Simulated scan of single mutants.
Amino acid sequence: MNKVKCECGHVNPHGTIFCEACGKSFEETDTQGLLDMRYEGSARRSQTYNKTFIDSIWNFFSSVKVGVWLIIITLLASALGTLFPQEIYIPQNMPPGDFYEQEYGALGKIYYELGFNNLYGSWWYMILVASIAISLVICSLDRVVPLYKALKKQGVKRNESFLRRQRLFAEGNVDTPESTDTWVKALKKKHYHVRVEDGNILAEKGRFSRWGPM
């Protein structure tokens, strides 16, 4: 897929919402509303690639809803497995099918026929557990990787439209380099990590909190 080159010269991955370097939005339909800062504008694989069979599998397991439903189904199956004793805990002097039917009637027979007598070792239960593990890994990678790259590459100088579309925005004048130095010193006293580039200041602290929207 073609990458997106910003007017600032930075080349962004396909699907990026706004430039990783300067913050200029690539969305032509909405230029006034607040920017979606959930992943710092980075492209998630699940929302970008959808051509191959592997992409389809990735997109399926990257859904949080799918992960939640897999957990719910597994919990329900696990609960049903405790309804009657598992096969390893019943007397071994008679066939399991006969035991469940004799002890628990028709419900016991259905329980045995559905394979709940050996639930935690059954192939479909193992698939459910493996699917949950796969979902957790893919969900994490699909969100962690682009967010990490975006936070690592964020530039100091930002496009004006990027700044104006933030939740909090204000304007003011800094007349002299001495004023800039004063701001930098004040921010550092507040334990901000400060970067300065061509008179622009980027002050940041508590970056860990920016991983919250994952």
Rank of each mutant, 00 (worst) to 15 (best):
Y104I: 10
G23K: 07
Q32K: 05
F84S: 10
Y112M: 03
F116W: 05
V66S: 00
V137N: 01
N59S: 13
Q47N: 10
V137Q: 03
G41P: 04
P13R: 06
K190A: 15
R45Q: 11
F208R: 02
K205F: 02
L70A: 07
C22K: 06
G33T: 15
T31G: 04
D30M: 05
K51M: 03
A43M: 05
D36V: 04
I134L: 14
E204D: 14
A106E: 14
L119S: 06
I90E: 11
T31Y: 04
K189V: 13
R195G: 05
Y39F: 15
S161G: 09
D142R: 08
L83P: 06
R210N: 05
K65L: 13
S62G: 04
L202W: 00
E103I: 11
D198R: 12
K189A: 15
W123G: 08
A170V: 07
Y120A: 03
S46E: 07
E101N: 13
I134S: 00
Y49A: 09
C8I: 04
A79Y: 14
H191Q: 13
W69M: 13
G212L: 14
G105A: 06
G115T: 08
S209P: 00
I57W: 12
V184P: 03
S63A: 10
K109E: 14
D175S: 12
K51A: 11
F53A: 09
F99Q: 03
S62M: 01
L168I: 08
R210I: 01
I73R: 03
V145K: 01
G212S: 11
N118Q: 04
R210F: 05
E20M: 06
S209R: 03
T29A: 15
G23D: 02
E20F: 09
R165S: 04
K185D: 13
S62V: 02
T29S: 15
S62D: 03
I138N: 09
H193L: 09
R158Q: 15
S209C: 07
D36W: 07
G172C: 00
N59I: 03
E40Y: 04
I17Y: 07
H10A: 10
L202E: 02
E171I: 04
Y111N: 09
Q166W: 01
R158I: 00
G155D: 03
A133P: 03
Q166G: 11
K153C: 00
P96D: 01
N2E: 14
T176Q: 11
F208N: 02
P85D: 13
F84E: 12
Q166E: 07
V129P: 06
V4Q: 15
I72W: 10
K65D: 06
A150T: 04
N12W: 00
E101F: 11
Y89I: 02
V4F: 06
T82G: 04
G9T: 02
K24P: 05
E197C: 04
Q47W: 10
P146M: 08
V194Q: 01
I54Y: 09
A133G: 13
I110V: 12
R167C: 00
Q102A: 15
